[in-house]
Design a protein around this nucleic acid. Sequence first.
DNA 1: TACATTACGATACGAATCGTATCATAAATA
DNA 2: TATTTATGATACGATTCGTATCGTAATGTA
Lengths: 205, 205
Amino acid sequence: MKEISDYTQKNAGRPRSQKAHQAILSATRSLMLETGISKLRIEKVAEKAGVGKTTIYRRWKTKEDLVSEAFGSIADKVQIPNTGNKIEDLLKIAKGMIESVSQSFGVSVQKVTPIILEIISNPELMRMYREQYILPRRQIFTHILEESIESGQIRSDVDIDLVIDQLIGTYFYFALMGEDISTLDNRFRKAAHQLVEGIGTKDFH
Amino acid sequence: MKEISDYTQKNAGRPRSQKAHQAILSATRSLMLETGISKLRIEKVAEKAGVGKTTIYRRWKTKEDLVSEAFGSIADKVQIPNTGNKIEDLLKIAKGMIESVSQSFGVSVQKVTPIILEIISNPELMRMYREQYILPRRQIFTHILEESIESGQIRSDVDIDLVIDQLIGTYFYFALMGEDISTLDNRFRKAAHQLVEGIGTKDFH
DNA sequence: TACATTACGATACGAATCGTATCATAAATA
DNA sequence: TATTTATGATACGATTCGTATCGTAATGTA
């Protein structure tokens, strides 16, 4: 049997319907919001998309493959922010890691955080999320921080990748494991300030 | 029917076996390591514990309740570290959030991180993990940081809870979403140093 | 046009797992 | 001894899974 991922139309036979393809991905996204990933039923996706479940199983080997494409294909290019304030720029990019998803889905952040947690728990989906959502934003972070070094706001000897780890780690901890999302923005701003200015007394170093 | 969680022996009838209770929790922990939580089968737990599945369903309403007790009941008191170096103390506590689990289970950290990710993804299990594993360590963090303020290493105007968020956030990002666990310790140490000393130039503030 | 090929939607199917119900038996109290 | 509750075993209907089968539709080729 032919590998699903190796599919190429061989100029013979009925071609796969692109309309069905998009309908399936759209139905997958819609139902994911209602049930999460673990309770997503392929048969329900088929019903909602108006296709037979055979069509889904023919195109995607596993549910993870389907979800990965449904989720990954809506990620779009990250805009470089320019609020005039570096801290606000950093916040905007950090928030984009989850808000870009909630905006694509047209729902609140609270609706998508459980799904993102499920994605992070699954190695294959995590790979997609890292590549499509995290890494592009790390590049923007790098750009912003390098600008800050050039402008003399940040020391040139700091480990930029590590700073990004600290910012993203703090943001995810707030967004995915926090109990109060309403104060997230201000806590992130203050955390960024503490990182810039340092919490030490300077007497020691 | 009587609520399971409200169970109290009414001085009548055969009492519930405590031996079976512990055997069930132990079997749950053992099988969790092999299959994760989502694929944990109650029937397999019963078989491994040498009890009927009726006994499990009688005592725990849901799989989450069972896992929550099996996991939460092995959390023990957190020791206050005293390595002589505050950064090392912070690292030790942070690592304990995952290493205390791996040590209780007698397996490597890599074996338990997927399970902790599953726990974090489940609101009920996350509540247990927060109460049993995170909050006790936040208290130790607070203790260490207050000591550092008293000794003049850290400024008294810093937001300690926020510093803890930054440390824990960074640690979890490394441990749960990182790709290279071998350098985790050194990256955490360096991140803590960057937070203490600040990444800014002091020319701005 | 006729034929070969592949995709289509519908549906039937066995397998796995779920949580409940039933049962005779065991272990406690009154 | 009688009552009550727990025990382990097992049967059960309900879901969901992924596959197989079917006649039909849509394409390229002879």
